[in-house]
Each structure stands twice: as structure tokens, then as C-alpha cells.
Nucleic acid binder design. Sequence first.
DNA 1: GCCAACGTTGGC
DNA 2: GCCAACGTTGGC
Length: 169
Amino acid sequence: MPNYWLVKSEPSAYSWDDLVRDQVAEWDGVRNYTARNFMRDEMRVDDLVLFYHSASKPPAVVGVAKVARAGYPDYTAWDAASDHPDPKSTPEKPIWWMVDIAPLHPLPRPVSLEEVKRTPELSEMALVRQGRLSVQPVTEAEFKTVLSMGGAGSGEEFAFRIPSGRTGQ
DNA sequence: GCCAACGTTGGC
DNA sequence: GCCAACGTTGGC
């Protein structure tokens, strides 16, 4: 049984198309303890992930991805030349963690934040209640509702017909 | 350990 | 570009 998640990305920084091009992405640079804890402690290989475009017009869930590698230290933190260095993090004592994400399928229709907010079954989503959390858990019911709204049917055949081939590592 | 100042996210 | 929400830092 997979768990369900939502990750945000600004498409100007890293978009769904970038993920499709790369096939696997190291989800580095997350510098928030709540999000870090989810990645370090709870995200497992093959967990399903809603891929959300923030700061876009409109902000929307645009695709479904999966966790391709469970949590491991975010080595970009101790690389002074990286985009998100943190001198307090070291290889011996990492502070920040990341996972790898791989694309599964775009949503036939993106599901905008505005639609999510209008949908009573989705009113408890962290996306609505805690707008700034960039890695957040999603319930199975919420996941299926979003897929359905995105034109992916009930989600069953869509979500679970997963290409289980190699994706990095 | 409190809390004010500050920085960042992200919708609008 | 503005600004509200909120997480983090640092002085005390």
C-alpha cells in the first residue's frame, strides 16, 4: 500500500516537463523541517505523488509522480556552490534530506488550486490549510478525488498501472 | 524559553 | 509587485 504525497515546484525553477525530460529528479533544496521529516521518515519507494505547480497561472496539480528513492541526506546542503548551501549540515551530521521523484503520467486536465478550494472533500488538504508546506501528505481519498477531477477516472487503473522499471539509483 | 525581527513562500 | 502567513533566528 503506497502512501500519498503532494510536492510543489515553481515551474520556472523546475517544471513537470523538466521532470519528464529528466525521468528522475533529486528533490533537493527543501529547507523546512516539517517537509524534511516527511522525506526522511515517511516517504517510501513507489509512494504516489501529486506534482503541483506553484507561482504559476493558475497554480495547479499537473501530474502524478512516484517516489523513486526513499529519503537520503541532501548533499547539496554541504556544497557551498549549490543553490541552497547550509554550512551547519555536514556529511557526518546531515540536517536536510531529500528523495528522488520520477514522473508517471500528466493529468489530462490540470486541477487548479481554485478548484481544490471549491471542493468540500478537499477542504482539509494541507494545500489549502497550510499554504506554504512544500512536501505534504495526502489521503487516499483526496488523491483519488484529485485524479478524478483531473480526468483520470477513479484513479484505480491510472494510479496503479505503474511502470515498475528502473528509475535511477 | 519567550518573543520580536526577519526572511521566504506563494496566492492574488 | 504586494503582502499575509508563517517558519526561523537570535537577543535577552
